[in-house]
């Protein structure tokens, strides 16, 4: 349901990790590897965040848009659904779903400003058309829950309100992975808090123990995030570009 995560479509449609990074056959033929696939999604998550900064929408809209984009590529090939169009279309749709509608012409304006590359160039009508295709690809399930909602209360409860900014930043980074498709948002929030306590040298074991959650899952999510940080250091623009080249319009 719309306000209860446990009865929501979001919860029902959570995926197993193996189900997420599957390159569809038609994309494979173009030479897109799993690594490319991840890189492109990461790049598009960044693109959505950048665009969002310009059109000034809240973080929740960004998070919803990235979730939509990641859900789209579970079912649709990148070679047919150009990420460079899907990304702004997802932001556009998310802005409506989260009740802070952004105008399509504004998106087009900032796209041009951000990228001189012709491959990014799309017009209003392209975005509107892709909005519908995205809706269809999402099977019209639009409600997304995010770790942000639970964060302030959890931090306060853990006596870590001073680490709000740090933790918030970690949560933002989780959208550079597919975690939101796999785990309930509150567990992602807890994993982010777990990392923040380690970074801040804050002893929180007792607090975590008292929560009625599976700490193994929380720790695994935290490990994944840390792994991502490690691998992120070696991602170069060239690699992203090479992956994007395989999409060619």
């Amino acid at each position: 349901m719309a306000a209860n995560f446990w009865t929501s479509s979001h919860c029902k449609h959570l995926l197993d990790p193996e189900e997420v990074d599957i390159v569809l056959p038609i994309d494979k033929e173009r030479g897109i590897s799993v690594e490319d696939f991840k890189l492109i999604k990461l790049h598009m998550a960044n693109y959505i965040a950048k665009l969002a900064q310009h059109v000034k929408v809240r973080q929740r809209v960004v998070a919803t848009a990235i979730t939509y984009m990641r859900r789209v590529y579970i079912r649709r090939p990148m070679t047919e659904y150009d990420p460079r169009l899907v990304a702004p279309a997802c932001l556009y749709l998310a802005s409506k779903a989260e009740e802070s509608t952004v105008q399509a012409r504004l998106l087009v304006f900032y796209i041009k400003k951000l990228y001189s590359d012709d491959k990014y160039r799309y017009e209003i009508k392209d975005i509107l058309e892709m909005e519908m295709k995205v809706l269809e690809a999402l099977d019209y399930y639009l409600v997304v829950f995010h770790p942000y909602r639970a964060l302030p209360q959890l931090l306060q409860d853990a006596g870590m309100s001073d680490a709000t900014q740090l933790t918030w930043g970690i949560v933002n980074d989780t959208y550079k992975m597919d975690l939101i498709l796999i785990h309930p948002p509150h567990l992602i929030a807890l994993a982010s808090i777990y990392i923040a306590s380690v970074l801040k040298d804050k002893e929180n074991t007792a607090w975590f123990e008292e929560l009625r959650v599976d700490m193994n899952v929380v720790k695994n999510i935290a490990m994944e995030i840390l792994d991502f940080y490690d691998s992120h250091k070696i991602i170069t623009d060239e690699r992203v570009l090479a992956a994007m080249m395989k999409l060619n319009k």
Partner: peptide, 8 residues
């Protein structure tokens, strides 16, 4: 009509 796609 305003070219704003699917109505909110």
């Amino acid at each position: 009509k305003d070219g704003d796609g699917v109505s909110p």
